[in-house]
């Protein structure tokens, strides 16, 4: 078997300052080429930290303290900075969480969309514009020529997110980190954006790490998933199999806490305290002690 596209093994992260509260505890997962891998968990479970670690945009307060992130066989955590800068953006891209802050308010949409093509591929002039229009067509934006000259505040949140998706796919990367890409959007726009990411990913054969807290979203787009709790992997496997018969109580509880249209009337269930207490006990057995983050 060839090396997976992304192989994270034993990844640990903690706060840089004492008491060094742990944020990730020996997380391992693999993403194959063309696979959509969901990272699921509550706030603080460490799912975004994993995404940021891959992209080398961890906040200054957080440091990695063990493990490797192998992309196509190369470890990103020990790679020379110049090589990493070259990989990021071309081979690995990000679809950010909040389309309202992910576009620079004082630059036109078009120039932000084509940053990658300009800086990395050296495209300019008419060829650049042509490519930009194609990209916007791919994400089903009508009237792309007009949109290119607009400023971010002049377009809707859904449209901004589609532009950010187009920008992420613009250099045809092998891996995309989608960090809660639909959380900030209207429910009506969410579905459309999810379908778009799924379609583009299939066409381009891109591997996707899909960070989300929403199991409904996971069911729609993810091939496989990793459930996290307190920076620890709770369960991992095929999405369909896990959603159908979760082997861990916490996953079961998460599923019950998700609103579903096909179970009208049953309502949502809060996550039972016993399961979390159980996980906490497990965490302290890892030796993280009372300073742990949960």
């Amino acid at each position: 078997m060839s090396a997976p596209l992304l192989e994270i093994s034993g990844l640990s992260a903690r706060l840089r300052r004492p008491p060094h509260s742990p944020l990730l505890r020996s997380v391992s997962l693999t993403v194959a080429a063309g696979e959509v891998h969901g990272l699921v968990g509550e706030s603080g479970a460490g799912k975004s930290t994993i995404g940021k670690a891959i992209l080398d945009i961890l906040p200054d307060a957080i440091e990695l303290c063990g493990g490797t992130i192998r992309f196509a066989g190369e470890d990103l955590t020990t790679m020379p900075a110049a090589r990493l800068r070259k990989l990021l953006g071309t081979e690995i891209a990000l679809i950010p969480q909040d389309p309202m802050t992910a576009l620079n308010p004082s630059r036109q949409v078009g120039s932000q969309l084509t940053d990658g093509l300009r800086l990395r591929r050296g495209l300019k002039g008419a060829a650049l514009k042509q490519k930009a229009i194609e990209l916007l067509r791919d994400v089903q934006i009508a009237d792309p020529e007009r949109v290119l000259a607009l400023y971010p505040h002049e377009i809707s949140g859904g449209m901004r997110q589609r532009i950010l998706i187009a920008a992420a796919f613009s250099l045809d990367p092998k891996l995309i980190i989608a960090d809660e890409p639909t959380t900030a959007l209207d429910v009506t726009v969410q579905k459309e954006v999810l379908r778009m990411i799924r379609n583009m990913q299939k066409i381009h054969g891109t591997g996707v790490v899909f960070v989300t807290h929403d199991l409904g979203v996971v069911a729609q787009v993810c091939d496989r998933l990793t459930v996290l709790y307190g920076g620890m992997v709770v369960e991992q496997g095929e999405t369909a199999a896990i959603l159908a018969s979760p082997s861990h109580g916490y996953t079961r509880a998460l599923i019950d806490a998700t609103p579903r249209h096909d179970r009208a009337g049953t309502g949502m269930q809060p996550i039972p305290a016993g399961i979390v207490a159980d996980l906490k006990a497990q965490l302290s057995r890892y030796g993280f002690g009372p300073s742990g983050h949960v």
Binding site: L55, I57, P59, R85, K86, L88, G89, T90, I92, A93, L94, P96, Q97, D98, T101, A102, L103, N104, R107, Q112, D115, G116, L119, R120, L164, A167
Partner: peptide, 23 residues
């Protein structure tokens, strides 16, 4: 610099100098 657009610019491979002056 902590805004998403600045992080995105960093991922797109822009140097800190360029991000600061141009973004």
């Amino acid at each position: 610099g902590q805004q998403d657009y600045a992080l995105l610019a960093k991922i797109r491979g822009r140097s800190k100098l360029r991000i600061t002056l141009q973004e």
